[in-house]
């Protein structure tokens, strides 16, 4: 699985806001057109992103391996026709290019995922989204990262317990609803305890925000983001 890893790469040293801006610019550019020339240019950008974050192509592809199946199926389905000639390869060309651009978008986000710790993402959110919404969104995102492994462990123990007690003879509805009830009530019980702890530690609307500062390194990245974002107009 691809997640954040501490390192000293160029991407690690960038401000998270620049990295988010590039991804958005990239998505805008890639969704706007799928000409082979545009895709070639975008491939170069994606390759630079992966290099900058030191993510090997094989690793990024492996992380999105299930997506690759869907990306491969879409052109195949389009090539199939309901009558003669049954297979029309020409109809698969555009969907294939479209699949390729989605793959590029995924690869660029792999670079962000490996190079950005939660703390930076939280800071970027709280410094970009104004007011109370930004405060809750930033803290909430950090909480999702914190509690995902805890709830995964909960779900695992609940499934084991349900399997031990009910075996496989009960239907899927029975098993899924037990899992749902127990999973949600445990999550809410944890939330109620978390709520007390947050209050005891003075959870406030106006905390000191995590430090973030653009450096000279960010200037070309922001320029690239802007260029990508306006490229559909060119």
């Amino acid at each position: 699985m691809l997640t954040y890893e501490p390192d000293e790469t160029v991407a690690h040293r960038l401000d998270p806001r620049s990295k988010l801006a590039v991804q958005m610019g990239f998505a805008v550019a890639a969704l706007a057109r799928i000409s082979p020339r545009a895709l070639l240019a975008l491939s170069a950008v994606a390759a630079v992103a992966l290099l900058a974050a030191r993510v090997s192509l094989a690793r990024a592809l492996y992380a999105y391996r299930f997506a690759l199946v869907v990306l491969a199926i879409a052109p195949v389905v389009s090539a199939v026709t309901l009558g003669s000639p049954w297979i029309d390869p020409a109809a698969a060309v555009t969907p294939a290019l479209a699949s390729y651009r989605v793959l590029l978008i995924l690869l660029v986000s792999a670079a962000y995922v490996r190079s950005t710790p939660v703390r930076d993402s939280r800071a970027a959110i709280q410094r970009t989204v104004p007011g109370k919404a930004g405060q809750l969104l930033g803290t909430g995102v950090a909480l999702v990262f914190r509690f995902l492994p805890v709830l995964l462990a909960d779900v695992r123990t609940i499934r084991e317990a349900v399997a031990a007690r009910l075996g496989d003879e009960r239907g899927p509805v029975e098993r899924a609803s037990r899992l749902g009830v127990l999973g949600l009530s445990r999550a809410f019980a944890r939330a109620d305890r978390l709520s007390l702890a947050l209050q005891a530690r003075c959870f406030s609307w106006n905390p000191t925000l995590p430090a973030l500062a653009f450096s000279r390194l960010d200037a070309p990245v922001l320029a690239l983001a802007a260029g990508l974002a306006v490229s559909p107009l060119l």
Partner: peptide
């Protein structure tokens, strides 16, 4: 509230501004 030790311990003092 955070996945790492330092970020969690900092939460209270951050709220105090």
């Amino acid at each position: 509230v955070a996945a790492t030790i330092g970020a969690d311990v900092a939460f209270g003092p951050e709220n105090l501004g």
